[in-house]
């Protein structure tokens, strides 16, 4: 497993650069912004200790925050998603079925991966958008913004599994 120590740092830098240089600059219709960087948290080994997942989530979120001048917002949302990752994997996989340690699309099947991604992205995005506006007035405007961005992010993450970080 020596390769892991190179693969994950490279992945970290790659998703951060893609996020801040590409996705944060392209703005579909003014209010939809996909947050692909969550892919890094999705693809951490299943067997990784939960406290490590949390610390990495915080680090990743804070890095994105520094680039987009939003201290704490991405960090809070990513830690939230990172915390719910392990229970979610447990629930999605059932006790008897064996799950590959690398939670990619090729390893665990299309259906499992899409479901896993969808739940994680929706949790992350809704937390993120509601912390960002920090108000429940215009509840539905924020709701639709979160939903629209979630759809884009899920699409991009599933698509990315055919291009990079497949194994």
């Amino acid at each position: 497993m020596g390769i892991t120590w190179i693969k994950y740092p490279v992945m970290f830098v790659t998703v951060v650069l893609i996020q801040v240089l590409l996705l944060n600059q392209i703005q579909f219709s003014g209010f939809v912004n996909p947050y692909l960087y969550l892919l890094f948290i999705l693809l951490l080994p299943v067997s990784m200790a939960r406290y490590q997942v949390l610390l990495l989530s915080f680090l990743l979120g804070l890095t994105i925050d520094v680039f987009s001048n939003t201290p704490g917002i991405h960090a809070a949302a990513t830690v939230f998603a990172g915390f719910l990752r392990s229970p979610l994997i447990g629930r999605l996989s059932g006790r008897e079925s064996e799950i590959n340690d690398y939670p990619g699309l090729k390893q665990n099947g299309m259906r499992w991966f899409v479901l896993y991604t969808a739940v994680m992205v929706i949790l992350h995005h809704f937390f993120l958008f509601y912390v960002e506006v920090f108000t429940l007035s215009r509840f539905f405007a924020t709701f639709f913004r979160s939903l629209a961005s979630s759809v884009f992010t899920i699409f991009m993450i599933v698509l990315s599994q055919f291009l990079i970080f497949r194994d």
């Binding site: 610390l55 201290p71 704490g72 917002i73 960090a75 809070a76 830690v79």
Partner: peptide
Amino acid sequence: LLEVLSLVLVF
């Protein structure tokens, strides 16, 4: 702890 830290940053 991490959530509180993040939200302190936000506020």
